[in-house]
Nucleic acid binder design. Structure first.
Lengths: 160, 160
DNA sequence: ATTTCTGCAAACGATTTGCACAGGG
DNA sequence: CCCTGTGCAAATCGTTTGCAGAAAT
């Protein structure tokens, strides 16, 4: 994520917080920095670890209390991918309509955007009498390269 | 669900079980009947209640141990819709490619199928170098009728 | 007879919450 | 000052598991 984007997130969120009569705290700042500092997906626990490195005083409870705020503000998206634990995706700020392809072999998550899919989804939703607010396409699949060569970028030649 | 379909599920699952060296028990029979007796989605807890009505001896543990078998057999699908609790969908036997539209106002879930979406998903996935195994489109939206008239099939005229 | 299944209750892991104090506006 | 935010630890909730007996093949 570029620096300007990060600043944008910071400001938008500041707006969101003051708009709700909420306060700017060092803990929240650290959590935001940890969440939007990279484009990686993360779990609540992973976010806690990242945030703690920035500001030691951040606690698990505060992370769990801040996550819903970030989601509500629209900056962070909660993903329900096959996993048992909830995963958060900070990339919707830059790519608001992206979707996910999950490799069933190595569990790597690939993000993709597609205008046609976007249009088709809107079309279908309207036909059903609804106005879409949130759309998620999740596809699972096998890596062709892995199947053909027995190895791919994510799978070392010799598996354990 | 029609009676023949129910029988088909019963047989397919019997095949699946014996194929894995697993056994037919009254509890599993009851759970299957409860799961595929209607087209309703359900949670583990709801399935337990339905199954208990058919066969009192069914316990929560057995429900939780049977659900993964049904999912693995391909007959039942686990859905990750916004809800915190996992929801199961028995309708993939009859409609293997259907998707979900969720009303953000009343949380009603509408199932839909679309061939174009199906084709587009396959196309995109192949372009990314993968062979699709599982595809899920989940759309959230507002009911137009509700917005226009202040009421709709799922919302009584006077809200509490 | 052998192996899988079962119910029970305890264990578990992710998330939430009550509390008393800290700190932002 | 007032009210929101915090860390801590206990509580909660859905789900999983160890065990000894029951049942299917």
């Amino acid at each position: 994520m570029e620096a300007d984007v990060f600043e944008q997130v910071r400001e938008s969120l500041q707006e969101f917080l003051t708009g709700k009569g909420l306060r700017r705290t060092v803990q929240r700042e650290a959590i935001i920095e940890a969440a939007f500092g990279t484009t990686d997906h993360f779990t609540a626990e992973e976010l806690l670890l990242k945030a703690k490195k920035i500001e030691t005083s951040v606690s698990r409870a505060t992370v769990y209390r801040t996550l819903p705020l970030l989601v509500e503000s629209g900056m962070l998206r909660e993903l329900d991918l096959g996993s048992d634990t909830k995963v958060y995706d900070p990339n919707f700020v830059e790519h608001p309509t992206h979707n996910h392809l999950i490799c069933v072999d190595c569990h790597k998550i690939i993000e993709f955007e597609d205008t046609n899919m976007e249009l088709l989804e809107n079309c279908i939703t309207r036909r059903l009498g609804f106005s879409p607010t949130n759309k998620a396409v999740t596809i699972e699949g096998h890596c062709d390269e892995l199947k053909a060569k027995g190895t791919c970028r994510n799978h070392p030649p010799a598996k354990p």
